[in-house]
Amino acid sequence: MTLKSNSTWRLGTTSYIIPDHILPNLYYLQDKVDDVELILFESGEQSSIPDASQVRLMQSLAKDSGLSYTVHLPLDLYPGARDEALRRTCTETWKRIVGLMQPVDPVGWVVHLNDPPRDEDFLPAWQEQCRKSLEELSREVEPGLLCIENLDYDHELIWPWVLEMGFSLCMDLGHLQVRGEDLPACLDRWLDHVRIIHLHALNSEGRDHTGLQHMDRDLLAWLLSSFDSKTRPLVVTLEIFSSKHFQGSLKAIQEARQ
């Protein structure tokens, strides 16, 4: 099933829908979605970081197909680390990957601010370290293209001052649901500042990153209507990781539109 958005927003999904590397996923998805989230990681001997020739192929594919990209910078980095050497490792990795991926002209870069301290006394210092890291990254990327994602902690710890610094938001609706947040209230407050939405459902066991066939149809219809109302650029990424969840999500969107 194919379902491009045909709307004011671009429909996307991840670079891991079929069990293969990033490029085969891009060729599979090029006529099915408007955008692909390139999820990049480096962990031990495992890496999804493309080389320069692969980046050129991504660039060519986007030109030929009309596909756009969002880039998810690696997850296991610590921009708020107390250890300055660890924080610098994070920013140097960010900058290296940004330099590599700039030719694909991403519509947004997704950034995680990991591991806020449980010790509230260190919270201001963690925020300051995160600010410093983001300031360094913003010398390489237009600040409005940097999209700071909500994780498994209270997004109020980051989003107010992130916006003051001129950055954008990546709103992960599944993470908000896991935390029991009020989705309508969150969208009403933050949507004007959101450049990227991560959309996925919770299954009956409360597991997230599952297909939208697990989401209440009325809720999904309301969400789609909310996205339609946004006039600024918006990518809605189905942040799921299998063909089964992908096809189920496309069908659920089609049914919710009826």
Rank of each mutant, 00 (worst) to 15 (best):
M1R: 05
E142S: 00
L238M: 00
L40R: 13
T231S: 05
R82Y: 12
C130I: 02
G99Y: 13
V110N: 11
V33S: 11
C90S: 10
Q213W: 04
H214A: 07
D76G: 11
D192A: 14
L26H: 13
Q254E: 02
L73I: 07
L238W: 14
V162C: 09
E181I: 02
L199S: 01
R257I: 00
L250F: 05
L38P: 15
V111N: 01
L146D: 14
L163Q: 03
G144Y: 01
T91A: 01
I49W: 05
R82I: 11
A125P: 07
V236Q: 13
E239C: 00
I49K: 12
E149L: 03
G108W: 01
L73E: 06
S48G: 06
S7Y: 03
D35E: 10
R217C: 03
W222N: 11
D34L: 01
A221L: 15
L223W: 07
S226T: 12
E92K: 09
W190H: 10
A125Q: 04
R232T: 11
R195K: 09
Q54A: 07
M171W: 04
R207D: 14
K230N: 00
Y69G: 02
C147Q: 00
R118K: 10
R88K: 14
E255Y: 04
Q127W: 07
T210G: 02
L234Q: 09
I22G: 01
L38D: 10
L163R: 08
V71K: 07
S68G: 10
I158L: 12
T89F: 14
L29R: 10
T14W: 15
H175Y: 06
S242K: 14
S60W: 14
S138W: 02
L169T: 04
W94D: 06
E42W: 11
P117S: 15
L223M: 08
L238R: 06
T13D: 11
R257L: 04
H175F: 13
P233L: 06
H193Q: 08
F241K: 08
H200W: 01
S229T: 08
L3Y: 03
E42R: 12
L11V: 05
E45H: 06
K230C: 01
T89D: 12
H72M: 02
F241H: 12
F41A: 09
F41E: 10
F246D: 10
L145H: 07
V111Y: 08
S249Q: 10
R232Y: 02
L202S: 13
D192Q: 07
S138P: 00
E42I: 05
E164H: 02
V104A: 07
G180Y: 06
D154Y: 05
V111H: 03
F241E: 06
S204N: 15
M171T: 05
L202N: 15
P24N: 08
P184A: 14
S229I: 00
M1K: 00
Q129T: 04
D76A: 13
R96S: 01
W222R: 11
K4D: 10
N203D: 15
P143L: 09
L151A: 00
D216A: 13
P233S: 06
S226E: 10
P160E: 11
K132S: 07
R217N: 08
Y16W: 09
I197W: 01
A256S: 10
G206I: 13
K32Y: 10
V235H: 11
R56Y: 02
P233W: 01
W109N: 00
T70H: 09
G166C: 00
M215P: 03
V162Y: 02
H175I: 12
Q247E: 13
G166Y: 12
